[in-house]
């Protein structure tokens, strides 16, 4: 698949105000910093950033060793976010993620010890290795932006972004996320192998850990929050909503899918497209924005119908990509 780069804004003084351009400059710096470490994955990086701006959560599904963890690290460093990593295993308990109240001898009461989820960027590594119970604890926190332990509710920090990784589910000893849980992730990315040139640079280059350690934040969390809050100001025209509805409609009518896209998926599509427009420095959404985020937002929510034999995800996605732009 060709890597669509966010469209350069067609500069038109009457169209673009100053604020979108400033945002774009700041975000471009973040991308540039990240691209210096994760080579040849600009598109994925941008999608991940878009997901973050849209206040969604990201699922990265791929084989081990393609840089899933590095991506999370780099994003956290480039945005100056507080970062925690949770390695999911089959014996991981919900309390290991959320935190627990532990008896404190000094003051004679229970004190809540926040778990690793109380971070701005949480890497949930190999989420499909944990039991469904633990998985759902994480997913609930992702949805609610808060954690309730023993009757008390604790707000999660802002921004809050979960980056979960998953090995392809045909590996033995995993608990595949049910579809209902997959729906909670705004996007799912596959990193894939780097291309020859990028891999060569990677092999020749310095240790990635070292590079990450030396990174400085290209943006402050406050700026990120401001950008997140600006998301809804990105204009979505009626014509664009027509397009999104046409996509949803096609997914629901097409015989290729077991079920159509949910309204949540549609909502996610709008938000992700808005975020993509912000990355492009535009104050409105274009059909190209929708097309850029469409595979990442939609693919994990669609199941092939029983008689649809070609399981490759590109084939599965084709009917939606072919929806005419109204």
């Amino acid at each position: 698949m060709t890597a669509p780069v966010p469209k350069p804004s067609l500069h038109h003084p009457a169209i673009d105000g100053a604020a979108p351009a400033e945002r774009k400059a700041a975000l471009d710096q973040v991308i540039a910093a990240a691209c210096g470490i994760i080579l040849g994955k600009e598109r994925e990086l941008r999608l991940a950033l878009a997901c973050l701006i849209a206040r969604g959560h990201l699922l990265i599904e791929d084989l081990p060793g393609v840089g899933k963890t590095t991506l999370a690290h780099v994003l956290a460093r480039a945005l100056g976010l507080q970062f925690r990593r949770v390695q999911f295993t089959s014996d991981l308990l919900p309390a290991d993620i959320l935190g627990a109240s532990i008896y404190d001898r000094d003051n004679g009461g229970f004190t809540f010890h926040p778990g690793p989820i109380f971070a701005q960027l949480v890497l949930a590594d190999e989420i499909n290795r944990a039991t469904p119970k633990t998985q759902s604890a994480l997913l609930e926190a992702m949805e609610e932006y808060q954690v309730t332990v023993e009757g008390r509710t604790y707000a999660l920090p802002e921004p809050f972004f979960v980056l979960a990784t998953q090995n392809p589910s045909h590996q033995i000893g995993t608990f595949a996320l049910p579809e209902s849980q997959l729906d909670r992730f705004l996007m799912r990315l596959e990193l894939g192998y780097p291309d020859t040139q990028a891999e060569r640079a990677l092999l020749r280059g310095r240790d990635r850990r070292e590079l990450i350690a030396n990174m400085t934040a290209a943006m402050s969390p406050t700026t990120l929050i401001a950008i997140q809050q600006n998301l809804s100001t990105v204009h979505v025209s009626e014509a664009l909503l027509d397009y999104i509805q046409a996509i949803l409609h096609t997914s629901r009518l097409s015989p290729h899918y077991r079920e159509g896209l949910s309204p949540r998926a549609g909502l996610g599509l709008v938000r992700a497209a808005q975020a993509w427009a912000i990355l492009a420095g535009r104050g409105y959404v274009m059909p190209e924005d929708v097309q850029a985020v469409l595979p990442a937002v939609v693919r994990h929510r669609l199941q092939p119908a029983a008689d649809f034999t070609d399981h490759s995800s590109d084939e599965l996605f084709k009917p939606l990509a072919a929806v005419p732009i109204p």
């Binding site: 067609l10 038109h12 169209i15």
Partner: peptide
């Protein structure tokens, strides 16, 4: 194209452009 995009998706008053 820029005019069309601005008019159709940019939320600009069509009469303007």
């Amino acid at each position: 194209s820029a005019l069309y995009i601005a008019l159709r998706y940019g939320g600009h008053d069509p009469r303007l452009q």
